[in-house]
C-alpha cells in the first residue's frame, strides 16, 4: 500500500448527503474494469449525460476541480454496498483524501486498506472548508492535509486539526500490509483455534 504522509492539492466540495457506493462506481464497471482504470467510471451516474457526454453542471467536470485530490463530502458518505472498487474509483480519479461528517462503516474501513485517508469533521467545519475551496475562474486553491501532524491547512493558512485512530494512522503513514502484520502472530491464531475447538467443537466439525 502507498503510504500517506502529507498531501497538497485542490479540494472539491460535493456536500450532498448519503452518497452511496453505486454512485461512486456502478457494478458493471466493477466487474469489467481493472483497478487502476476506474477513474472514468467514478460518479458515473452524475458526471455524464445520457448520451455519455460530460454533464457540465457536475462539479468535477469543471476545469478548476478536474484535478482535485481532496473531496469535501456530506453525511454518510460511501453508504451502501461493501465494494472496495468505490475507493479505487475515487483513487483512480485522483482523490487521496475524503473529508465528511460521517462515513458508511464499510467504505471507511476500505479507505484505509487502499491508502485513502478518510477524515471525520463536523458538518459546519466542512462547510467552512468548502468556502475556502471556492474557485476563481478556472483555478481552485490548494489545501494541505498533513497526517503526521493531523492538521488541514487551508489556502488562507488557517489550520483545522483532525484525529485518526492511532492504529490506522500508523498503518497509513507506513503503508503497512495488514496480512504481513497478522501472520507475524500466526501462532496466536493457532492457539486460539486450538482452545476454541475444545470450547465450541461444532464450529470446527465440518
Amino acid at each position: 500500500m502507498e503510504p500517506f504522509v502529507r498531501l497538497t492539492g485542490v479540494a472539491a466540495p460535493i456536500l450532498t448527503g448519503n452518497v452511496n457506493t453505486d454512485v461512486l462506481v456502478r457494478v458493471e464497471a466493477m466487474i469489467n474494469v481493472p483497478k487502476g482504470k476506474l477513474g472514468p467510471y467514478c460518479f458515473e451516474v452524475w458526471r455524464y449525460l445520457p448520451d455519455r457526454s460530460d454533464n457540465p453542471d457536475f462539479i468535477l467536470n469543471q476545469p478548476a476541480y478536474r484535478n482535485a485530490k481532496i473531496l469535501l463530502a456530506g453525511v454518510n458518505f460511501g453508504c451502501g454496498s461493501s465494494r472496495e472498487p468505490a475507493v479505487w474509483a475515487l483513487w483512480d480519479m485522483g482523490f487521496r483524501c475524503v473529508i465528511a461528517p460521517s462515513f458508511g462503516d464499510i467504505f471507511f474501513n476500505n479507505c484505509f486498506q487502499s491508502g485513502m485517508l478518510p477524515i471525520v469533521l463536523p458538518a459546519d467545519v466542512i462547510v467552512s472548508l468548502a468556502e475556502d475551496a471556492k474557485a476563481f475562474g478556472d483555478v481552485a486553491p490548494d489545501f494541505t492535509v498533513d497526517l503526521e501532524r493531523q492538521v488541514i491547512i487551508a489556502p488562507s493558512g488557517r489550520q483545522t486539526p483532525f484525529k485518526v485512530d492511532e492504529l490506522k494512522r500508523h498503518a497509513l503513514l507506513e503503508g503497512l500490509d495488514d496480512i504481513g502484520v497478522t501472520l507475524a502472530i500466526a501462532q496466536r491464531i493457532t492457539d486460539f483455534q486450538t482452545a476454541d475447538r475444545n470450547a465450541r467443537p461444532w464450529v470446527y466439525n465440518v
Partner: peptide, 22 residues
C-alpha cells in the same frame, strides 16, 4: 458483517479480521 476486497483477502489468509468495536 460485510467487508471490502482487501479484508476478504486478509480473512482468506489468516481466518481473522481487524475491527473497531462499534
Amino acid at each position: 458483517f460485510g467487508m471490502g476486497r482487501s479484508e476478504v483477502i486478509h480473512v482468506l489468509a489468516t481466518q481473522t479480521i481487524y475491527q473497531k468495536k462499534p
